[in-house]
Nucleic acid binder design. Structure first.
Lengths: 160, 160
DNA sequence: AATATTATTGCATATTTTTACTTTTTGTAG
DNA sequence: CTACAAAAAGTAAAAATATGCAATAATATT
């Protein structure tokens, strides 16, 4: 959906530039940009974007983006691809799962950089990582599936 | 006051060990611990703790702690100071469990010190640790519970 | 192209969360 | 101990948010 995607972008933009305390408010901002939708749809959008309502500086509630949203662009064949610098993914070599643990092999010395990126994304599917020189040990959430973890990692390592 | 503080602690403990999707649910958990309060009060507690409602792994809503709050008290000049000495809190920031693994996040560079302390205690609930820069990966004994591990760790990290 | 499948949305409503107001509890100073 | 002030908690109602269902639009399949 073209409309939905640009609307999600608009939401990201608004939330990262101004303080929004309720969905109603956000709805108004979106209206100014020409987006016409109901609160119900907005609720679903926010759910999908994993936006959270926190407590701002003056004790006011505020909606904020959580994980760093990856900007994407349209690939040659029309599909959407993450925009990731090659440096970030070159190190990756393989991933294997066992129970709630995944082991990622990288090129020598790339492990800690990769782990750093993974940690930074705060994926709910991943509770933490430890890096050696060419190995990242990754602990999955109890209820996460391999698929979910792979999907999360794909935002960092497109060709995983 | 006394009651409120221990209740806030209980909330922190519950939220860091189990998935809670609504205030109603959390209220039940608190009741199990002997805390009797209304949902309105809980809403205020959560606001004060800056707890946020996010979207968990399976798309379900979930309440989570944001930044682990530092315990503070009023200093001589009226400003607020952390109560625990850096040594005591050893950079601790958060702990998460998955299966027989716990992942402890610390401030940068604190992980190995913390792991060293944990290892030194020879807790029967913990068979070993590995530390990165800001992450300690902890392997639990087969028969240890999350609660038992937390209780053990509390001797090192009072405000865990 | 026609049909089946899936995704998106609005509407209405249920659920959840916040808040204004009041009462109770707690701490403090006389 | 009593009175006062401040903090905490309950009550009830408002506000905000989530969701089941049905309609519609987009996408895929034959």
């Amino acid at each position: 959906m073209k409309i939905k995607n640009s609307r999600l972008d608009a939401i990201r933009l608004i939330l990262s530039t101004q303080e929004v305390g309720s969905q109603e408010e956000l709805l108004n901002e979106l209206a100014k940009e020409g987006f016409k939708l109901t609160q119900a749809t907005l609720s679903r959008d926010l759910h999908q974007l994993r936006v959270v309502k926190t407590v701002g500086v003056k004790g006011r509630y505020r909606y904020v983006l959580t994980r760093p949203q990856q900007y994407r662009h349209e690939g040659a064949s029309g599909e959407m691809r993450p925009v990731v610098s090659p440096q970030e993914s070159v190190g990756y070599q393989s991933i294997k799962f066992s129970g709630n643990i995944a082991v990622i092999h990288t090129r020598p010395s790339y492990a800690s950089t990769l782990a750093y990126h993974i940690d930074g994304c705060d994926f709910p599917e991943i509770i933490g990582t430890i890096a050696g020189d060419d190995t990242v040990l990754l602990v999955m959430s109890e209820d996460a599936t391999k698929g979910a973890v792979l999907r999360a990692l794909r935002t960092i390592i497109p060709n995983i």
